Each structure stands twice: as structure tokens, then as C-alpha cells.
Amino acid sequence: MIPSALKPTMDSFNTLMRFFSNQKAKIGYGIMAIATIGGERIFSLLSFQCPCNVEQNMVYGLSYLLGPALVLFIVGLFLSTSLWRLYTGCCLNPRKLCPHRANCVGCLTVLFNVIVGALVAPIMWLSIALLNGTFYECAVSGLEDKALVNWFCKNRTITCKDELAKVLCVPSNMATENSKELLRILQAQSQILGWILIMSSASAGLIGTCYKNCRSQVSYLQLTFWKVYMEKEAEKFDSFTEEYATRLAERNLKSFFENKDPEAFPFPNHKAWEHISTIYTYDRGEQYYSTLQRYVENPNRDYTPEKMPLEMEHNLG
């Protein structure tokens, strides 16, 4: 029993926990943004040193600008559960990627959503890096295109063309005023590109969300329920997996050490795992919210492949 004096505190704590649980996606993006800003500052201050060489500036600057973005994109793909549900086993059975022609659009949609989700962190990195300008300044100062060099050094001394790659470095034979002016131009260009990237990403996100909701086969409240259900199903699946894996391990170890036949242990067969591992696509004619629910509510789920009629197996596939 909770003392009456502590009930208001517990209620406030539960309310706070529910708030964080409901906002965990936004909190996650906030943490990602803070980590990206911190990582960019660490790279800029501790490890980045522009070589001030025409032959190396471009490669060095772009490696710091694009390299972390590529790594973040790959990490985003690695952490995507949907990607592995779609991809696992497809080399042995390519039809798993698209078991039915009608479902190909759904599979492509899942793959598109995976790529878009993995692009969030790289876009954050590129936006922050461009707004800071350090990597862009180093890369562009190594340009060897004569037209661009002439544009940057227009109305300036001939030294500008020879010393453009050293604009970030000291000492430089370029006049201080010219050097500062070139740095301001490069930084302004970088920041403009950064804001263009931010505005383009935000606009694309808004348009994509509007299009997705406009084409949704369910109402907003049902879609909200669906999202909550999928989160809860994933949480419970993890807890059930741990519990049953523990029980199975204990049963096998007990059988081994006691030198006895193992006790009967109900466990899904291989075909059941295959069914619930497929990507779910919504059908208005079914009141299901996941492949797991579709499977457990199917009255013929316990049929074995040998006993199942061919037409029934086709309908389940």
C-alpha cells in the first residue's frame, strides 16, 4: 500500500513518465541533434586541420563533410528493424522480398521509409557542418577550376589566385583584408547551403507526411491506436522472447545435467516464425494491426504444410 501522503508524488511521477513515453520519438531526435552538434564541434576543434594545399584541401574538406554523414547513414540502416525483417533470408528465397505482386508496393514503401529514416542523422550532420562552415571553407579553397578561382579573386591581386588554398592558414602572402573577405564569402556560401538543406528537408518531410496521411486507409485516431499497438507489441515481444528463451534454456540444461528426456515444451514451428516475420501491409477488409495478430486469429494456423490444402496454403502465404 502506498501512503496517502506519497500518492500525489507518485501520480506526478507517473504523469511525467507517460509524457516521456509519449514523446520518446521527439526526445530521441533532440538527443540526436545535441550529439551531432557536439560531434561536429569536437571534429572542428580537436582533429580538423586544413592542409592548406591545393591538391589536398578539396579531398580533406569533403572527407570531413561527407564521411561522418555516410557513417551515420550506414549506422541508421544497421539499426533498422524493418530492413532486417524485409532482407533476412531473401538470398535463399528471393520471393520473400515480394511474395505477391500486390504486396510489392508495400515492400518498396517499407524500403523507402527505411532509407528516409536512416537519412535523418546524416542530414543533421550536413546541416550543422555547413552552418559552421569550417569543412566547406577548406574544401572550396582547394578548387582548381580557373573560372571559379577567377570569380573568387575578381578585383583582387594576383596573389589571391596563388594563395587561395591558404586562406584558412597563417602565414599567408595574401593581404589580411582580402583574406578576411574571402573567408566571409566562403562562410556565407556554406551557411546558405546549410539553410537550403534544412528548408528542403523540412519541406520534404511536411509534404511526405501530408501525402501519407492523405492516402491513409484509416482515420487519424485509428492510426494513432495502430502506432501505439505496434510499440506495445514490440515491447511485449521482447519480454516474451526473453522469458521463453530463459525457460527453454533451463529446460535443456536440466535435461542434460539430470540425464533425462526433456519435458514437452510448446514452441512455434518454422512456418509460424516465417508468417509473423513478414512485413505487414494494411487491408481494409481485415481488422488486424500486425502480422502477429493476423496469424494468431487465423483459424487454420495450426495446419501443418503436409495436411494443409493447396488453395488454403496459397491464401495464407
Rank of each mutant, 00 (worst) to 15 (best):
N113F: 12
G117V: 10
A118T: 04
L119G: 04
V120P: 03
W125S: 03
I128N: 06
I128W: 05
G133Q: 05
F135L: 03
Y136M: 02
Y136A: 06
Y136E: 01
E137N: 08
S141N: 05
S141F: 09
S141T: 03
E144A: 04
L148P: 06
V149R: 15
T159I: 12
T159Q: 06
K161T: 10
E163K: 12
E163S: 15
A165W: 02
A165I: 00
A165Y: 00
A165G: 00
V167S: 05
L168T: 09
C169E: 03
C169K: 05
C169T: 03
V170P: 00
S172H: 00
N173P: 01
M174V: 03
M174A: 06
A175F: 06
T176Q: 12
T176N: 06
S179R: 14
K180S: 14
L182E: 02
L183W: 01
R184W: 05
Q187A: 12
Q187D: 10
A188Q: 09
Q189N: 08
I192V: 11
W195R: 00
W195C: 01
I196A: 01
M199A: 15
A202Y: 07
G205D: 06
I207Q: 07
T209V: 05
C210S: 13
C210V: 14
N213Q: 13
C214R: 14
Q217L: 10
Q222K: 14
M230N: 14
E233N: 01
